[in-house]
Design a protein around this nucleic acid. Structure first.
Lengths: 175, 175
DNA sequence: CTCGGGTAGTTGCAGATGCAACCATACCCC
DNA sequence: GGGGTATGGTTGCATCTGCAACTACCCGAG
């Protein structure tokens, strides 16, 4: 997650007139509407969460995500590339993010003794405390901004649908 | 939309152990799963679409979105701030985006004669052609990556759910 | 007229991103 | 052992982002 929400939007409807052939053949209007709703919902929610988290904890959403991954990992540590995959950011992006987290004293980076290529990113006690401090407000914000719009069963349905979409787009690691 | 997809992820589950009090009170597990699915789906889809669009048309997703807004507007033009709102990017972001689109000859920026503060961003014939060239492949990609995962009725349901979430987070213009 | 407040856009700035090229290490095979 | 190749990370680079400060302009009050 970026510290800043991604600018997002797309109006794909009503292009038929422009595109000569009807756009509905290229993109079903039903899908177009869903796509726009998807982008809009994402943009609004992440924008709000991002600034709230930054204000209350001085931590970017990306920071939070990375730390959350470490929190739930064995011994609070993960290899750089595992972490990059888990946090859905590029390897280079993670390198720099860990740099910054390390400056804060929230994470350490140590070379693995068994495989010199590997580096472990480890959450420090200080980092854990920072995370604990930030999590309640952030989770509450997610609950409010994202969770409160739907009932539990709707939410489960939504999850299934989103997972189908995610599965359609599974792919290997990035650079 | 950014040219690059936003790094996105968040594992909010299984934090109870760490957070002393049970995290499920802060964020229902059902919501947490949905949230993660949401971020994952978004990240994967936009990442793929972004690079495909760039490869096939040399245009970023943000460019496409901005041009799409102009295409569907009266006289292919919009005031800067209207456009920024519609494309969900900041005013400063739009200023620079229009700079670049103008360099390509895809858009012009002209001061409004009636109100000197206002500037109109107008899609040029060249820009329209570029958009027409890019749209089919992009729309097809959206259909494939996003649209093909669900049935039409599921898609409509998804739209309703997403709009509820978006509505919960409606807010004014950004800087 | 002109002063003050409000609106539309732009610019300075600091930070973040990914890709591709580049090291460093590990591993495999002759 | 000595190459050749694959893997894990980091760095150079160009680009993008938003916020806050700033300029340009409009408009109403006096």
């Amino acid at each position: 997650m970026a510290t800043t929400s991604k600018p997002v939007s797309a109006e794909i409807e009503a292009l038929s007139a422009v595109l000569g052939t009807d756009a509905s053949k290229l993109l079903d209007p039903t899908v177009a509407k869903a796509w726009i709703a998807f982008l809009t919902a994402y943009g609004r929610v992440t924008r709000a969460l991002s600034s709230e988290l930054m204000d209350t904890s001085g931590m970017s959403l990306a920071d939070f995500d990375v730390m959350a991954q470490l929190v739930r990992s064995e011994d609070y540590r993960l290899r750089m590339s595992e972490l990059a995959d888990a946090a859905l950011i590029s390897k280079s992006g993670l390198t720099r993010r860990i740099d910054r987290l390390a400056i804060n004293g929230w994470v350490t980076r140590r070379r693995c003794t068994e495989d010199g290529r590997v580096h472990w990113a480890t959450l420090t006690p200080l980092g854990l405390r920072a995370f604990k401090g930030a999590a309640p407000a952030h989770l509450a914000a997610v609950a409010e901004r994202f969770g409160s719009a739907l009932t539990a069963s709707e939410m489960e349905r939504l999850t299934r649908d989103l997972l189908k979409i995610a599965a359609k787009n599974a792919e290997p690691t990035n650079s």
